[in-house]
Design a protein around this nucleic acid. Structure first.
Lengths: 110, 110
DNA sequence: AACTTATTTGGTTATTTTACCAAATAAACG
DNA sequence: CGTTTATTTGGTAAAATAACCAAATAAGTT
């Protein structure tokens, strides 16, 4: 891995890192049907609103979402919706793991 | 976001987190054409071999790769290859960001 | 203009992650 | 069997992340 490659992978990792948090991942999925106001997230997530705002900022800086202020509300929307395609694959990983665990349990019981 | 949903998103985020590191992302991509020995990564990454081993362990525990010991070498391979599909989308995010930055630079220069 | 509401920003602390070194393990080889 | 080679494990210090509270900003309302 040379210097140039390292830079590329640091950039890519930053984007994945933005998604790699339960709250941020959930928020991202909530945007599947279009924009949502920060207030909507505040209402549905059990965390300080400053925490929620910071999570949204991280998604925005990663280039995953964008925001627009209208009146005193700020609306966030998906900028690059393909990130939602990750989910199918992540679920495949979980299922594959489940199989391994099931096998292990089976062996313990034998 | 209720308790059940929270659990699901914590599990999903854990998998993304495993990928969200430049070295681990690079390693994962290197496995596209089949298994590779730990020694191969050690030869190509400028980091302590214990660090590399730990990165591989993280990918393994996430269920993304699996390993097999043959002789004194350990070979890692992709267990759920669909994770490679992420890359196209990540690159789309980067390109979309690049456009924003280009526009900003343009505006500064005007 | 003062007041309320929505959101962001700054600061602090606790937790997690990362990297390195040293030591342990495990297989192959003389 | 002692040695070399490949990899993992344990420990530790530094850096990054996350959560909360308080304060600032910004828009709309009275």
């Amino acid at each position: 891995m040379n210097r140039k490659e390292k830079n590329i992978y640091e950039t890519k990792a930053k984007i994945l890192k933005a998604l790699a948090h339960p709250t941020r991942l959930w928020m991202t999925e909530q945007l599947v049907n279009g924009e949502l106001c920060v207030c909507k997230f505040v209402a549905e997530i059990n965390a300080d609103f400053s925490t929620i705002s910071k999570h949204l900022t991280i998604l925005k800086e990663a280039g995953i979402v964008e925001s627009e202020k209208r009146g005193k509300q700020v609306f966030y929307s998906l900028k690059v919706p393909c990130v939602l395609n990750f989910m199918t694959c992540i679920e495949a990983v979980i299922k594959s793991q489940a199989k391994v665990h099931a096998r292990l349990i089976q062996q313990i019981e034998d």
